[in-house]
Design a protein around this nucleic acid. Sequence first.
DNA 1: CCTATTTAGTACGATATCCCACCATTATAA
DNA 2: TTATAATGGTGGGATATCGTACTAAATAGG
Lengths: 153, 153
Amino acid sequence: MDDGQGGQDVGLIFDVFKEIGIIEQLSRAILEARLPGDLIAPHFSVLSHLSRREDGQTPIDMARAFQVPKTSMTHTLKGLEGLGLIEMRPNPKDGRSKRVWLTDDGRALFARVIVDLGPDFVALARGFDTTRLAEIQPVLTDLRIFLDAARDV
Amino acid sequence: MDDGQGGQDVGLIFDVFKEIGIIEQLSRAILEARLPGDLIAPHFSVLSHLSRREDGQTPIDMARAFQVPKTSMTHTLKGLEGLGLIEMRPNPKDGRSKRVWLTDDGRALFARVIVDLGPDFVALARGFDTTRLAEIQPVLTDLRIFLDAARDV
DNA sequence: CCTATTTAGTACGATATCCCACCATTATAA
DNA sequence: TTATAATGGTGGGATATCGTACTAAATAGG
């Protein structure tokens, strides 16, 4: 059969992905409970992305960063633009594309949500040993990088 | 300011959830690439759930297990039933509810997908140190349990 | 240059997800 | 018992996601 550790690995990988899937759902629920009713997690992800990086990214860059189809990103951005949280400006370097900027409202909303999430995160830090999170964080990052690289092969 | 480790924790938790969100998307893409075209990840999750536990669960139980609204579970089950992969039978113990059984086709399809995922998982095990996955697995499980318990408070 | 190919973005249609409202059945309580 | 509340499931509408196809602009090759 030649599965030195192969069989164990398959079960392990399966379990890890399963846990990650559930945690993703639960963490999304925590986030969306703190978001205004007309925003969902993808909206917030975009605001976060623009806050932490430079503004002026193109939609296609963001679609790649989030691993979603560009049509999904178009839709998400349209929603944020309609709420006045981002601005789409033409890209002077490329007539096909646009560049996305946070508005003051967008920046303020993002900051407010972060504050509102504080109690949730504090509760988590109280009830769960965050040194364990610190230990898994690099592994998760490496796994994400590995999967991301393996994706387009 | 009194954030002994508080500030660090918030950033750490944020990062962990962000990585988990991306890994979830990437792992879902890997799975769906191996599924028949008319099945998506939630369908497979249901098949997996029924395979590993006893059949005969009620839809509401499964909705709770997956943390999705019961209407979403109804929709997913309807799809699986239409493909002949599960069977819905009345629940003799409760006239309101139904019980869900895998059909032979459902069982066979699940087994086949597991086999088809083999190469993907082998590639992952070759390129990524699975002992690191083994290390994070218990932390992920505990985190999932903690979040799940904190959910309904 | 000029044509062919690639790329950024969008429109549209199909399906998924989720909220709300509703029905039937069961559990609770008076 | 009987009235009330709670529960399991579904239907319908709104929005989300995603694939396909299309337009316009940029790039590559001749």
